[in-house]
């Protein structure tokens, strides 16, 4: 399944545009080095981390896209950076747990 297909099924709100990559699995953590060491390429990453470093980590680790749960918002400069890097960032009113359950069913 691709980013846009999954985003539509999960009824996510789009914050930034990016590449419509394949999504293989899901990783959840807010500790950046945990993510760099633990995620897999083409994961969707669920995090409340909304700094510029979040974008950098997602790009370095070949994350397909980012979901900010529980209506977490990202600062404008972070959204602009995500657009620049071609990283799709979305938000959701659901919790990380609810999202993971749905993603588990869909992938």
């Amino acid at each position: 399944m691709t980013v846009t297909q999954l985003a539509e099924k999960l009824e996510l709100k789009k914050l930034s545009n990016g590449e419509d990559k394949e999504v293989n699995s899901c990783y959840i953590s807010d500790l950046l080095s945990r993510v760099l060491g633990g995620c897999s390429p083409n994961d969707v990453w669920i995090t409340v981390q909304t700094s510029l470093n979040m974008v950098a980590v997602a790009v370095m680790a070949d994350i397909s896209f980012v979901i900010l749960p529980e209506d977490v918002t990202a600062p404008v400069n972070v959204i602009l950076k995500a657009n620049d890097e071609g990283l799709p960032v979305y938000s959701s009113s659901k919790s990380a747990y609810e999202l993971a359950l749905l993603i588990g069913d869909l992938l």
Partner: peptide, 15 residues
């Protein structure tokens, strides 16, 4: 608070 400090950076580099 920025998300660093897990103490995983150097082990990740080695890995």
């Amino acid at each position: 608070e920025l998300g660093f400090g897990a103490g995983m950076g150097l082990p990740n580099i080695k890995k």
